[in-house]
Amino acid sequence: MTPVTSSAVSVHVNGDAYRLELDHRTSLLDALREHLALTGTKKGCDHGQCGACTVLLGGRRVYSCLVLCVAVGDREVVTVEGLADGADLHPVQEAFVQRDAFQCGYCTPGQICSAVGMLREAEAGWPSAVTSADTGTSRLDEAEVRERMAGNLCRCGAYANIVPAILDAAGHGGADR
């Protein structure tokens, strides 16, 4: 018997349902870019080491390069294309524009999706490695943002503007959408 190495896969992306015939090897990242023409999500390393491919999966930030699309199941996928409400940018996107938080822009979709997920995590009271054990709270400051965003590298070194952009968004309901 020849093994079955491809399947019909249903995925829900940015509110739309798609049905794709996929080789099981296809990552969520490649499905988005090559099969759904959603090229906002970027491929930096393809090994979980850079963060360029960050999307929200079931509401949580993940690296889409390490997710097999066949394993996504019925969890909703949100990419950078799905964050704005029509012409109304997401508060994190707006803050990146206001703060000029990019140079080449390659890491930016991943930074923005990651920041959206990270603000939800902080809102839910999740600690980080720099959260003080005494207070146990996680008031976002520069050190917290840098640690929580460590999974997104910027080759241009735009961190000096990325950090204040995220702090701005945190103060403007960035976690609520």
Binding site: V62, V67, P127, S128
Partner: peptide, 23 residues
Amino acid sequence: IRRDHPVLSQALLAGASGQLRNM
């Protein structure tokens, strides 16, 4: 875990990144 076994929470938070820890 944070209250009674802080070493475990700290070890997890010292590993990988936010995205990887979610997966």
